[in-house]
Design a protein around this nucleic acid. Sequence first.
DNA 1: TGTACATCAGTGAACGCGCGTTCACTGATGTAC
DNA 2: TGTACATCAGTGAACGCGCGTTCACTGATGTAC
Lengths: 211, 211
Amino acid sequence: MADSVRSPRERYREQVRDEVKRHAWEQIASAGVTALSLNAIAKEMGMSGPALYRYFASRDELITALIRDAYRSLADTVRAAAEGGTTAVALAGVIRGWALQDPHRYLLIYGTPVPGYHAPEDITAISDELLAVLLVVCADPAAEDQKSPFDVLLGAKRGWVAKVLASPRTVHRALSFWTRVQGVLSLELAGHFAPMGIDPGLLLAEEVAEL
Amino acid sequence: MADSVRSPRERYREQVRDEVKRHAWEQIASAGVTALSLNAIAKEMGMSGPALYRYFASRDELITALIRDAYRSLADTVRAAAEGGTTAVALAGVIRGWALQDPHRYLLIYGTPVPGYHAPEDITAISDELLAVLLVVCADPAAEDQKSPFDVLLGAKRGWVAKVLASPRTVHRALSFWTRVQGVLSLELAGHFAPMGIDPGLLLAEEVAEL
DNA sequence: TGTACATCAGTGAACGCGCGTTCACTGATGTAC
DNA sequence: TGTACATCAGTGAACGCGCGTTCACTGATGTAC
């Protein structure tokens, strides 16, 4: 455990930061990112408003932390499925499951961008990692895969991805996969399927089966 | 012109309402729906805040009007293309063009739902109308189309749609078309393609070509 | 055509609210000798 | 093991801000005779 090396105070800090984030997610779930308020979180935790500034420098920093956690969680979920061996169809189901488990977490990442907000670089790196896993899963076994600009881009950032050799065909498959998943999920989570009596899970499976 | 029948006062009212909406769109474009403020709009128009309550009963009613206009504009655009005769690929391009022309208008409809907001019925009717046009464009010429629950749903609301006979196959094609368009657009407008050097227009064309 | 009246656009003051953030401070927790 | 000092979590008051919305009002625009 890396914890044993941390001082009690550091552990305590991390605990409080986590609790702040938990309340933040609850608030987002019930009223959207917009309604996220440091003061309100503090009140729920039985603290005064300014106390939170010991843990997050500003509201923006808290949002950044939430976004990073969301990306991290999705990337880990997807990678775990990929490493365990999975088909594209199954992976689509896993991603959908992740999104449905906490729709606002999905929407924070892939919904309407927060105006004026720009993600720091370490976050886009996680997003790249995710794409790399998709390349692996969508690799076309029929095509002889050969290096392309893609794996240079991705491989440079995380060692384990360096071995991904993506042919143009594979890149295209991965992009199709990704946009189709996004298409179904964004419509489903915004409630656009509800009035139509359609099973989004079934639709998604059919969409990614035809890659 | 129906205008000749309206009193000068009524025409003036409509003019002001339109100007309010124009400023509202500008505000949304620069800072998101969240930042939409009646007071700020009034100030920009050189009026006092409460004056706007002559034209919109509340902030929510203004947002509703904006959403309705956005749906109406999209539905008209799509229908015009369909009536002029269009392929699925071309229609996808038209829809993308409409979205790029004013991304926030697209996002207001298909982005993260405004928390606590529920669209009135006349708006969902426009959304149905849009879907009906997609059914027409995506009708599978090979399959013998036969009545399904779909055209009962849609036909009841607007006369000209009543003739749409959608086979299950056609319904499926229309849904695929719609989700794929959404997938590409939602990723493109959220800026997720930018770091990858991908042409979203090309990707979209390929996606809907494989229906 | 002119006058009396009704309609309605817009004002300014006010209410209550909650926000993010800063600041000087108290008191508890840890550290060094 | 005990004492002196430094660190740091949390408080409460305050600042300035803008929001949506209500209300009683003034003054201009239209309508009816």
